[in-house]
Design a protein around this nucleic acid. Structure first.
Lengths: 108, 108
DNA sequence: TATAGTACTATGTAATACAAAGTACCAAAC
DNA sequence: GTTTGGTACTTTGTATTACATAGTACTATA
């Protein structure tokens, strides 16, 4: 039980919410998402991002399309679906509840 | 992929932090902790609490002692160790980072 | 053609919550 | 004394998700 692992465990489960949030207002491809995450204190790697995107796509919360790139191979852009938006709105609520509950417990 | 499971996954990993926080200022036994949690929007059950307490004890972050009860069987009180306090201070930092990172991403 | 950079796919392993089953102790009722 | 109900603790198999890793594929450049 070390601090790095605990940090990972604490972040685990929040990534889906974060990724959907990123895609809420603008379609994105995986490497773009990884780049954005790298600017936060989250440590997330591609081995995590891709399965999450696939999972969300399989659940019909995201759709995708391919777009040529002038910097390398084509990119797979993800776009949030109406169902995805509904789901995400619920996740907003849940995250808010979690923050409040943690605060409640820390200040107990 | 349903909302209940996602809620669970989002909370998962935070419970260790919460339990250590509860024990920070005052020794506690399991059922007491469950009772406090029941007043928050966390859904946590004994099947989770006990293994967490055991894990933290095995990592030397908690110590314990038995105390007779006049309402039933004896209670196993947990007390945070100096190492546990150090660890918890780190978790305070990590949680703060996580909150900031989520906010950063939501507002991206 | 080979190399470098960019992008995507898949999987075995590790970690943690939960449902569930079970054990144990004490007090009250019979 | 025995049974019942309430209280408290222990254990474990299953489900889920992140990560390290290995690999494939496309485009531009040397």
């Amino acid at each position: 039980m070390n601090i790095e692992n605990t940090k990972t465990q604490m972040s685990k489960g929040i990534f889906e919410y974060c990724i959907l949030s990123l895609i809420r207002n603008e379609d994105k491809y995986a490497s773009e998402i990884i780049e954005i995450f790298s600017k936060t204190k989250f440590d997330i790697v591609e081995g995590t991002i891709y399965p999450i995107l696939t999972r969300l796509k399989n659940a019909s919360y995201l759709s995708y399309y391919w777009q040529e790139s002038n910097q390398g191979p084509p990119r797979k852009y993800y776009k949030i679906t109406p169902e995805g938006l509904l789901f995400l709105n619920q996740l907003d609520e849940i995250w808010s509840d979690i923050e409040k509950s943690v605060k409640q417990i820390i200040n107990y």
